[in-house]
Amino acid sequence: MTELEFKEKMEKLEEIIKDHRHQDGPLMPVLHETQELFGYIPEDAQKRIALGLNVPMAEIYGVATFYSRFTLKPRGKYTISICLGTACYVRNAQAIIEKFQDELKVEPGATSEDGIFTLEATRCLGCCGLAPVAMIGEDVYGKLVPEDVPGIIKKYRD
């Protein structure tokens, strides 16, 4: 993200804050939209939200670090979520996540060097009928075997 892009996004953040300021319990919706806007929740944005919603920074930090969907570091362009829910686990989802780890050379929770992929182990995606399952963006991939993994990565990398 260039400096200019960042500045533009900070301006958009103003609108987000304005939209929610008068709502009951505005912090979660604002953090969701901030996460979507920047791909993470930068410190500058936290400061701005603190002022705009009149909530202490410490509290915002506390909330942002409590929930796994909010991140304080930039994410990759695509987040690959591997379901480790029970149904997937008993159908060997462990092998799928290991294959992604091998192929992308990242640990779960980290972002690949080229900044394209963030690998993530997630809780049940609710597609238990298709176990084991992975989700990239809003695309769901089901009934996976480790051999499927390189092809899926290629699709997004190109």
């Binding site: 505005p26 912090l27 919706p29 909330v63 409590f66 929930y67 796994s68 969907r69």
Partner: peptide, 25 residues
């Protein structure tokens, strides 16, 4: 509609309420 943010404990009723209020769940 209010969105959760990936915390299992928010299925517990008082934690869910805390989350809607904008606190740690």
């Amino acid at each position: 509609i209010r969105l959760g943010a990936g915390a299992f404990v928010c299925g517990e009723e008082t934690a869910l309420i805390a989350s809607i209020e904008g606190e740690r769940g």
